[in-house]
Nucleic acid binder design. Structure first.
Lengths: 179, 179
DNA sequence: CCCGACATGTAAACTGTTACATGATTAG
DNA sequence: CTAATCATGTAACAGTTTACATGTCGGG
């Protein structure tokens, strides 16, 4: 039984909200943690198999009425314990990779318009994110779940908002400077 | 001749500042773009070979006086053109992965102290980054290079500062809320 | 009748880190 | 003498995306 990776632990975390299929997991993660964590089907399905083999999740198959079978996974006691142990450990430092910044950094090799364009595009993106976050907030408030659970969800959302706002401020500052 | 990836283009970009060895490339990238882009030797050396085979960089070998040979690479005209074409194209959206946020998100499954700890650690990290950025600023000012080049370097540095400050603000807000 | 949502999965390709291997020189 | 710096490189492993493959059901 090898050590689990971050992806697998993220899936365990999502399953703590209730039993779900691989498909559900993807849908849920896309809107709830999508702005700071993404998973693809190509990872989800193999990971679920692995987690089941390790006894961290349990599968229940529903014969679909004509539809393809649906495999619903729920967290086992062992899975929850593994998850909690992980949550107690400090998070690994993230190594960012920002292509846009790279293009600004090397921007003196091309016409200034290109740099302006990169920054304008970033600004539009951050703006769109802020709009999306407002929708996420509404959705969180509408979901069922304990107040504490919601508090944690909203805390991460606040992070996204802070970052997007900082990006916008930076973009505006830079666009002014480049004019 | 397959399409280059971001790493290879980043190396071409760094080589635009002058001829360098793989080792130099690593040292330079660590302090100059390290806060938003990182490369490891395990990538750099194979990439340089590949770039040379494609005619985008040219190698000059210096016999070291006893030391191991030093391979210095410089950008060719074709390499510069490839780089400029890339700089003109919009940057791909970055997909962030933030383990700390994931642990805050699932924080209601463990004692609140753990969430406080994750945030406190983030705060210390962002603080340290801000200190490091001040040193980078001094170093940029001391480097030779055109004013325009420096302007671009300082623009990306401002980005780092904005983000680190936003992170600090978020941390402080959250720590207050959790008390 | 066609599109989008539901639903699961695999394989290939790609990308990246880490550990290992080697070895000289220089500063403390 | 020993640690750090210069210096290059490979191999194993780990992680991720993408394209492909398959098929139903409901709504417009």
């Amino acid at each position: 039984m090898k050590r689990l990776n971050q992806s697998q632990l993220a899936l365990l975390g999502l399953l703590s909200f209730g039993a779900m299929s691989g498909y559900d997991l993807k849908q849920l993660s896309d809107w709830s943690v999508g702005y700071f964590w993404r998973e693809s089907y190509g990872q989800i399905y193999p990971h679920l198999k692995r987690l089941e083999a390790d006894g961290l999740v349990a599968r229940k198959t529903e014969r679909g009425t004509g539809r393809r079978d649906r495999h619903e996974y729920r967290l086992t006691a062992a899975g929850k314990q593994t998850l909690q142990r992980w949550l107690a450990k400090p998070a690994a430092e993230e190594i960012p990779r920002n292509e846009m910044l790279l293009k600004v950094f090397f921007g003196d090799l091309v016409a200034p318009e290109f740099t302006v364009e990169h920054i304008a595009r970033q600004k539009a993106q951050s703006e769109a994110e802020l709009t999306a976050y407002a929708a996420v907030q509404k959705r969180i408030e509408g979901e069922q779940g304990s107040p504490r659970q919601k508090q944690h969800w909203l805390m991460t959302l606040r992070y996204g908002i802070h970052i997007a706002q900082a990006q916008m401020n930076w973009c505006e500052e830079m666009l002014k400077e480049l004019k």
